[in-house]
Nucleic acid binder design. Structure first.
Lengths: 212, 212
DNA sequence: GAGAGTAATGGCACTCAGTGTCAAATGGAA
DNA sequence: TTCCATTTGACACTGAGTGCCATTACTCTC
């Protein structure tokens, strides 16, 4: 099965004058310069040399600009779940996949960081994230449901998915740094947080927590 | 210390012409009738006999109407945390408090249900909820931090707070009923979900889960 | 190379949430 | 009454998002 290279389907009709990538790039620059709220869709459109109306054909909303190819990434996460050994404990698989899924190319890290700073620090985007992360939770719930032999909509898979998302978000927030002190690797933070989740946040034995 | 009864401070100046309660009541009726999105702030204001501008002096946004006295309720949760025995395991206290906090007067249940249906099913409100639930998480994080001897902003208290919120939301969603089949008590659902969280979602021993 | 068909574009007008400003209304107190 | 504090609501404005539609750009066929 050979898929054609991205964007050469030789279709009839006028060709797109820009791309999501390009618009995102313009938008990020403006967000960096003036902040998310102060940047209007008009600004972005003008900056990209397109009409305001056209912007909304590339993105459903101004909020969606910061999400890049998120939905496509989720396919990757699904594959990672599929590739875990079936006898591995559920929460161990979950932990491993979430950590792996969030491992990014070092070159991409600055952009990833700016993206996540926007999503988790701009109230409008944080609110919107709930909607986007619904897809993420679905992927987790489906995996958990498969392992548990339940339906994805039932309580335990949903609780697991919700809890996992929460822990991941806490990890991200910590990684971004509230006070901006020490710099830690995202994957390490996520691994530590999911280790805690796996143990029900119970202080093991005495208090030999594996703090770094 | 005696606090004056609600709203008789005999202040100078014009008296308020309505109340949050009253506006909420009008709004809920309209939401029920036409749905949240189709109901405009103008509709609510007109229904309550006030000006549009005045509405925004009672509520920061249309979204906030459905939240009632949420912030005040959180004080109650704080007290519940304070009243737990200090030697009780952290997650056990958390579970008990969340379950208690969400126990509502049977008379109030229908309204509570409609409120939560709005919050958890209307996308705009679900998104907005992330912002409001930030306060909820803060309360939990402060409690967890106290028990762990850490700062509320550090990773573990935050992870616990995020996970707890997630599990509570999953419980609520389940209570509302996706397909609308069997009717279960909210507190029972929350108790079961938090029991799972407490155990790290690990199938105990064989598979003797305490399913009802 | 002149249509014919197809798709993307962008302008226009509109709705609605939310905000700043300010004059008018309301009521207690001097 | 007059003064003062407070609330109200009208008006105007910004900005997101949407429906509509003529225009533009491109491919394919005759």
């Amino acid at each position: 099965m050979v898929t054609s290279p991205p964007e050469v389907p030789v279709r009839p009709g006028r060709r797109r004058s820009t791309s999501r990538q390009q618009l995102e790039s313009v938008a990020f620059e403006l967000f960096e310069l003036h902040g998310f709220d102060a940047t209007t869709v008009d600004d972005i459109a003008k900056g990209a040399g397109i009409g305001r109306r056209t912007f909304f054909r590339y993105f459903e909303s101004k909020n969606d600009v910061v999400w890049g190819a998120f939905s496509e990434q989720l396919d990757r996460m699904r594959l990672q779940f599929d590739s875990r050994p079936g006898d591995e404990p559920l929460m161990a698989s979950l932990r491993a996949v979430v950590v792996e899924f969030n491992r990014v190319d070092p070159d991409e890290e600055p952009r990833h960081r700016r993206r996540m700073e926007l999503i988790l620090r701009v109230p409008a985007l944080l609110a919107h994230s709930t909607l986007r992360y619904g897809e993420w939770r679905e992927v987790v719930a489906e995996f958990a449901a498969g392992r548990l032999g339940e339906r994805p909509e039932s309580l335990r898979p949903q609780a697991i998915a919700h809890a996992a998302l929460g822990v991941a978000l806490a990890g991200y927030q910590h990684w971004l740094g509230e006070g901006g002190v020490e710099r830690v690797a995202l994957c390490d933070v996520l691994d530590a947080a999911f280790a805690d989740l796996e143990e029900g946040f119970a202080p093991r034995s005495a208090e030999a927590t594996r703090e770094a």
